[in-house]
């Protein structure tokens, strides 16, 4: 699949397999189009070339109605949480359930409380999104992402800006929910240790292509200097520390 914004290529003939029931991580430096990839998978953007299939359905050839049916089987955790700010936590989780089902309100309540219990926030159901910490908002968004019992959940930078406790909670939740709910998870992140600790398989993307792929152990043992620089977080290497510039002395002596 290829995709670009105007003349700027984001993905150039990229190919990925996301195995069912596993946690697959997509990692890479900032600005490589990881979030764009999730939007392509969700059908919010259309590739300029190639196709994206989910369960044998070509996402971008589906009618609007069929695409919406498919999206009911996908959950997505946005980087910002994307909670609706004018309703409380309970109503945020209940929103997709009320929209897509005719369940009694008592059943909706039970479902919402179960989802909130799974992320440890049953007691926060009456809070408004503005009253939540960043970590709590992500957990509420996680509960909403699984509200319709999807088969696949996409996590967009779930660990960014989290304190160590929140991060630990989120890491455990992604892994445990994947197992207990039999989900297929795609985690987009550049938080290396956390993502590697929960992933079954990792794709490293940069410059519009897959530069490396494998299990966390395979990548740790990779001899590729780029992979090592990324995983170890080294400041200099194949990706130089200095932005391209003339020699320092020449710059300093220049009037």
């Amino acid at each position: 699949m290829s995709f670009g914004w105007g003349s700027r290529k984001i993905f150039n003939n990229i190919s990925l397999d996301i195995p069912r029931g596993k946690v697959t991580a997509i990692m890479g430096p900032s600005g490589t189009g990881k979030t764009t990839l999730l939007k392509l998978i969700g059908g919010q953007l259309t590739p300029s070339q190639g196709s994206i299939e989910m369960d044998g359905n070509n996402v971008h050839q589906l009618s609007r109605k069929d695409l919406y049916q498919l999206r009911k089987r996908m959950g997505m955790l946005f980087q910002s949480g994307a909670l609706l700010t004018d309703i409380n936590v309970f109503d945020n989780i209940a929103y997709p359930i009320r929209e897509h089902t005719d369940l009694d309100e008592s059943l909706v309540r039970s479902l919402v409380l179960m989802k909130l219990n799974a992320v440890g926030l049953r007691g926060a159901r009456d809070l408004m999104p503005a009253e939540l910490s960043g970590g709590m908002a992500r957990r509420v968004a996680m509960a909403r992402a699984i509200a319709l019992d999807p088969v696949m959940v996409m996590y967009d930078e779930p660990f960014t800006g989290q304190d160590p406790i929140s991060m630990g909670v989120l890491v455990n939740l992604i892994r445990s929910m994947n197992k207990s709910l039999h989900l297929t998870s795609i985690v987009v992140s550049h938080d290396v240790p956390e993502t590697m600790s929960i992933s079954d398989y990792i794709y490293l993307i940069s410059g519009g292509t897959v530069v490396a792929k494998g299990t966390p152990d395979e990548l740790r043992n990779s001899s590729d200097p780029w992979v090592q620089q990324f995983i170890e977080g080294q400041s200099d290497g194949p990706v130089p520390f200095h932005y391209a510039a003339s020699p320092l002395m020449q710059d300093l002596l220049q009037e």
């Binding site: 969700g42 999206r71 009911k72 946005f78 994307a82 997709p96 929209e99 319709l148």
Partner: peptide
């Protein structure tokens, strides 16, 4: 800007209508 409209789309809810 807070991705609420994108979030609705991904929940299979049409933000144009809602």
């Amino acid at each position: 800007s807070t991705e609420q409209l994108s979030g609705m789309e991904m929940m299979a809810i049409d933000p144009m209508q809602r």
